[in-house]
Design a protein around this nucleic acid. Structure first.
Length: 507
RNA sequence: GGCCCGUUCGUCUAGCGGUCCAGGACGCCGCCCUUUCACGGCGGAAACACGGGUUCGAUUCCCGUACGGGUCACCA
C-alpha cells in the first residue's frame, strides 16, 4: 500500500445532491489535491429500493459544474479498483462476510423485521430506554449464537432469509482520533450488533463502506458529522478484519438558515433560494428543484461561498478560486460546529465575481440573457451596457432586468418621479433639449453631455431641475446609470422619439 | 429518552493562557462621493451561554448546568 493520499466521495444515488453534499465532495477534493493525492467517486447504491434514476448523472454533472472532476471511479478513470458502484460489487462482499463469520466476529440472525419491531415496541412500552440487538439481548433472539448448529444449517438450506450481524464485544472502549474533533470514545455497551449483510444478499452501507475503502486504498475518510455515531462501528470492523483503518474527519453539518436541524433535500425551494447546485428534474415523478447554476451563480462564486462555510484559512482572505482553495485548505482549520447557511453572503460573492468578469465576458453574459428573452440591442454597445449595468447586478440576468429601458421603450413612467419631478415646465424643457440633440451631428456621450450642460448654463437651470425629468422621459425611471451613456447607447432617433412620446403622455 | 458531538456579534468566523474593554466578512445604520440609483470610500451599533474550578492571569484548560445538533433501520 502506498502512502499516497486517497480520498473518496461516496454518495448514494437517491436524488439530487444538496449543497452540504457538494461541500463534502469539495473538501475531499481540496484535501486530495492539496496533498497531491487522488479523489475518487464511488456510488453507494446498496439499497436498491431507494435508487433514483438520473441521480448518478446529476451528481457527476453537478460536481463538474463546480470544477470538481474525479481522478478515479464514476466520472473518472477505472484504475483497476472497480467496479465503483457497490451494486456491481455485490459478489465481492460475501467472502468478507464469511471471513467475519469464520472468525467469530459476526453471526447469522433469523429474526424478521416484524419480530424486531415487536421487540422494540415491547421495550418501549415497558419504559426501557432503547432496545438494542446487543450482547445482552442476542441471547434471546433467533440466531446462530442461540440456535443449534444443525438448525441454523437447516434453516439456511431451506432458504429461510437471514442477515449477518457484527458480534460486538461487551464493555470495550472504542477510541479513535478524528482530525477535526480530536479523540472520540464510545463503549460497545452503547452500541448494537448492526446488520452487515442483508437478507437480499447485499451488504449494508457499513460493511460495503469498510471493504471498499480498504480495497481502494482510501487513506482519509472525510464525511459529514451524521456519520460520527457509526464511526465506532466502522473502527470495530477494521479491527475485526485486522486492517489498518483510514484517518477519520467528520465535517460539521450545514444547518437550515431558519428553523432548527440540518439542511435537507426537502428544504428545496421552501426558503426562497436553491439548496441544490444545479436544477433537478425527475422525469418519473415530476419532482423538480432549482439549482445555483440556473439561479445565475458563477461556479467559482458558489464554490468560494461553500468552502468558507465551515472552514477558513486563518487569515482575513476570503476570495479564493479553486486553486487558491487547494493551496490554502487545511482540515485542521475546519470548524467543529454546524454552520447555518446564509444566502445573503452567497449573493455578495456572486456580485463580486460578476464584477470581476471583465467586459468581454460580461458582454457575452448580457448577449445570452438578451437572446433568452428575445431582446436585442445595438451589438456594438454590448460591452458598454454590460459594464454599466454590472455595477448594479448580482446575477447575469440583472444585466438585463435592471436596465430594461435600454432594450424596450418605456410603456409607463414611474409615478413617484412623475408627480415629484415632472412639472409644468418639463414639457418645454424636454422639447428644447430634444431640439438641441437633434442638431448634434455626432450623438456621443461627450457631445450629449456638452449639449445638455450648455442648455443648463444658458437657461440658468440647475442639474436637479432638468435631470430627473429628462431621465423620466427617456427611461421612465427615477434612477439609473448616467443619462449621457444611456442616450448614446439608445441612439439619437430613439432618444428623440422617447422624448416626444413623454411630452405626449405626461403632458 | 440513551449515546455521541458542539456552544465568540443577527449570520459565517479569527482567537490555540497575558498582545482582547475580542479582529475580519455578510447584513444593518450613518456620513462622503454622485443630478438619481448603484459602485466606491469612511465610520457606527452588534458577541466570548451560565456556574464552579485550575492559574499570578482565562474567550482560550478541566468539571457541571443550560441550550443546540447528530444518531439510535435488513437507509445511506
Amino acid at each position: 500500500m502506498s502512502s499516497k493520499v486517497r480520498v473518496r466521495f461516496a454518495p448514494s444515488p437517491t436524488g439530487p445532491l444538496h449543497i452540504g453534499g457538494v461541500r463534502t465532495a469539495l473538501y475531499n477534493y481540496l484535501f486530495a489535491k492539496k496533498h497531491g493525492g487522488d479523489f475518487l467517486l464511488r456510488i453507494e447504491d446498496t439499497d436498491q429500493t431507494r435508487f433514483v434514476p438520473g441521480a448518478e448523472k446529476y451528481i457527476i454533472e453537478a460536481l463538474a459544474w463546480c470544477g470538481i472532476s474525479p481522478d478515479e471511479g464514476i466520472g473518472g478513470e477505472d484504475r483497476g479498483n472497480g467496479p465503483y458502484r457497490q451494486s456491481e460489487r455485490k459478489p465481492m462482499y460475501r467472502q468478507y462476510v464469511d471471513q467475519l463469520l469464520d472468525n467469530d466476529k459476526a453471526y447469522i440472525a433469523f429474526d424478521s423485521a416484524e419480530e424486531l419491531d415487536t421487540m422494540r415496541q415491547l421495550a418501549k412500552d415497558a419504559g426501557a430506554a432503547n432496545w438494542q440487538y446487543n450482547y445482552i439481548t442476542r441471547g434471546n433472539m433467533k440466531n446462530s449464537l442461540t440456535l443449534p448448529k444443525e438448525e441454523v444449517e437447516a434453516k439456511i438450506a431451506a432458504g429461510e432469509p437471514y442477515v449477518v450481524r457484527i458480534k460486538l464485544p461487551r464493555d470495550h472502549e472504542v477510541r479513535f482520533e478524528d482530525t477535526i474533533r480530536g479523540w472520540v470514545s464510545v463503549n460497545t455497551n452503547n452500541m448494537d450488533d448492526k446488520v452487515l449483510f442483508k437478507s437480499d444478499g447485499m451488504p449494508t452501507y457499513h460493511l460495503a463502506n469498510i471493504v471498499d475503502d480498504h480495497l481502494m486504498d482510501i487513506t482519509h475518510v472525510i464525511r459529514g458529522e451524521e456519520w460520527l455515531p457509526s464511526a465506532p462501528l466502522h473502527v470495530m470492523l477494521y479491527e475485526a478484519f485486522g486492517w489498518e483503518r483510514p484517518v477519520f474527519a467528520h465535517l460539521p453539518l450545514l444547518l437550515k438558515p431558519d428553523g432548527p436541524g440540518k439542511l435537507s433535500k426537502r428544504d428545496g425551494d421552501r426558503l426562497g433560494f436553491p439548496v441544490f447546485p444545479i436544477d433537478w428534474n425527475n422525469e418519473e415523478t415530476g419532482e423538480t428543484a432549482s439549482g445555483y447554476r440556473e439561479f445565475g451563480f458563477y461556479p467559482d462564486a458558489f464554490i468560494n461561498m461553500l468552502a468558507l462555510l465551515g472552514w477558513n484559512p486563518g487569515t482575513e482572505q476570503e476570495i479564493f478560486d479553486l486553486q487558491g482553495l487547494v493551496d490554502a485548505f487545511d482540515l485542521s482549520k475546519v470548524s467543529k460546529s454546524g454552520a447555518k447557511f446564509d444566502f445573503e453572503k452567497g449573493k455578495w460573492f456572486n456580485q463580486l465575481y460578476l464584477r470581476s468578469q471583465g467586459e468581454a465576458a460580461l458582454a457575452k453574459d448580457l448577449k445570452a440573457q438578451l437572446d433568452a428573452r428575445g431582446l436585442s440591442c445595438n451589438e456594438q454597445y454590448l460591452g458598454t451596457i454590460a459594464m454599466m449595468m454590472s455595477e448594479r447586478a448580482t446575477f447575469p440576468q440583472d444585466l438585463v432586468t435592471e436596465g430594461m429601458f435600454l432594450f424596450e421603450r418605456p410603456t409607463e413612467y414611474d409615478e413617484k418621479t412623475a408627480s415629484k419631478k415632472w412639472t409644468a415646465e418639463s414639457p418645454a424643457m424636454i422639447q428644447d433639449l430634444s431640439e438641441r440633440f437633434a442638431a448634434l451631428a455626432d450623438f456621443t456621450e461627450a457631445n450629449i453631455e456638452t449639449a445638455f450642460k450648455d442648455y443648463l448654463a444658458e437657461k440658468e437651470l440647475g442639474f436637479g431641475k432638468v435631470g430627473p425629468s429628462f431621465r423620466l422621459a427617456v427611461t421612465g425611471k427615477g434612477m439609473g446609470p448616467s443619462m449621457f451613456t444611456i442616450c448614446e447607447v439608445l441612439g439619437k432617433e430613439e432618444v428623440l422619439a422617447r422624448m416626444s412620446a413623454a411630452i405626449e403622455t405626461l403632458g
